[in-house]
Design a protein around this nucleic acid. Structure first.
Lengths: 288, 288
DNA sequence: TCCATTGAATGGGTGATCCATTTAATAATT
DNA sequence: AATTATTAAATGGATCACCCATTCAATGGA
């Protein structure tokens, strides 16, 4: 530190440590015994190298949430790369939810607590790119929610049930006051709470990611047509009762039947339900 | 096109279209009726804006896999931003699996077919950051695989079963030849094939993401201790038979019991099974 | 016809410079 | 003494002007 070495001095051998690594050969043999393939390589770029090194420090536990990386100018010098390319790496990590960059003195790159919403983005991109279909997503959601009900019945704690109860009350209020879009937000929250009540963050993350997309469709439908699921809060109450009694079979049946009726609602007038409408963002509450 | 306007001319009003947008207020009301919060904002940065615009074009279907974006220099000019900041955006999108950048004449930024492996990275980051635990991951995996067995029994096609059969044969070969680590790779592939046989890419993606991490642990264990699951191929054969007969109950039981025995194997000598060992990469076949 | 050469376009990377924000230290004011 | 402005430094945000390495189509010679 402090040895800043007079500014403007272009010391550092142009292409330094990180660049120009020899190209490794891909030796994956795996399944089909022998048959060495010689393809990938892909000329490791320096920003990839940087990302990987930082992720490595993370995996090794050297870097932990809350830690701060050196300032951009300093870190760039340490790594022997230009500040610009370092920033590309930091940007990527920031988008990945690993870092957060903060301006000002005392600012810097801080390791974040993991943001589970990242999986939502993955799902959204996969859908945008046509890698997965809406049908697959809906189907997966039904199955995963079925699993969630089982786990929630087994593991839901009192606090979880209370949170669901409170959510239902908000749903009733929104219904009475005719705030249909708020009611959709309540639904989104309902599934989030339900997922959380499984006590497993991995499951919760998965459920959230498929539900987030689904709710965009519901939102778009409600916003455009003004239709609304009848007796929503009532159905929720019945479901919560079954959950509280740890009645897996009943809870499962109730939820499944509800999901089916929502699906029917969405599938009326299918023309309006284009992917684009639902994904093309800018809907309150659904923004990150 | 062609109107390149004499180079070196600094036309463009310093902070152009993309920068300096007024800060919007967050109006989410959602659940708890009224009570407008005034927090987030987060000073939109230009690279975020760029990413979002490109994703928007994607969601709208204007951009599709295979399409090419304008060259960096040109696109930067179109957007009224510097090339560097545009590159930050492109980097992020590339890391997100949305784009692929290719050098040379006829190179450029090409929209990719979605890469489902991205979810693996999310899981890995969440684990590195301590947002999810190994226990949650294992538990989720067991449950999700249970679901997979149900779906595979219902939907697996002949080709899927054949692929699994071929995989088992490779496993037997690796076993006979004592290639233990290759056998782990076979296992990884087995679950990938099993997941694919559900016919649902969303489910498959989820399974792959949890399995990828799990297999790192198995790999590390096998590599360090030389232990190996006994009668692996035999167990796989039994399972495949049950699957072929669409016998959900039996297939489910067989898989669950196998998973439990693997878990027991992993949990011997727990000291060696640190997160860091398994996550700190550089294992053949597990690289992207 | 075929193969070597060349040159332009493109992404990869660098270094210098400026701006805007944030915070702590300092000075001015009450 | 306490409070309030002011200032200065550090940091991320962004720009500009280059240069390099790779790729591939066009060109030209054998």
């Amino acid at each position: 530190m402090s040895t800043k070495s007079s500014p403007r001095a272009p010391q550092r051998s142009r292409t330094a440590s990180l660049n120009r690594r020899e190209r490794a050969i891909d030796h994956r043999a795996a399944g089909s015994a022998a048959a060495p393939t010689f393809k990938p390589i892909h000329t490791r770029r320096t920003f990839e190298e940087i990302c990987e090194r930082i992720r490595e420090q993370l995996a090794l536990g050297v870097l932990k949430p809350g830690d701060k990386l050196p300032a951009e100018r300093e870190l760039a010098q340490q790594l022997g790369v230009s500040r610009n390319v370092l920033r590309e790496a930091l940007r990527s990590l920031e988008m990945a939810g690993v870092l957060r960059l903060q301006k000002g003195v005392k600012g810097g790159a801080f390791i974040q607590q993991g943001d589970t919403r990242r999986m939502n983005e993955v799902m959204r991109d996969m859908l945008s790119l046509g890698t997965i279909s809406v049908r697959e997503l809906s189907e997966a959601r039904v199955h995963v929610l079925d699993l969630v009900v089982q786990l929630a019945c087994a593991n839901a704690r009192r606090a979880d049930l209370d949170a669901l109860e409170a959510n239902i009350e908000r749903t009733e209020l929104a219904t009475r006051e005719g705030r249909l879009l708020d009611r959709v937000e309540c639904s989104r929250e309902f599934y989030k709470l339900l997922a959380a009540s499984t006590g497993n963050k991995v499951i919760a993350m998965i459920v959230d990611s498929v539900t987030e997309i689904h709710m965009r469709f519901v939102y778009a439908k409600v916003a455009s047509s003004g239709v609304a699921m009848a007796r929503l809060a009532e159905k929720r109450r019945q479901f919560l009762a079954a959950l509280s009694e740890r009645n897996v079979a009943l809870a499962s049946r109730l939820l499944r039947s509800h999901l089916e009726s929502v699906q029917r609602m969405l599938e009326q007038d299918p023309g309006a339900m284009s992917l684009h409408v639902a994904l093309a963002d800018v809907q309150p509450g659904l923004r990150r």
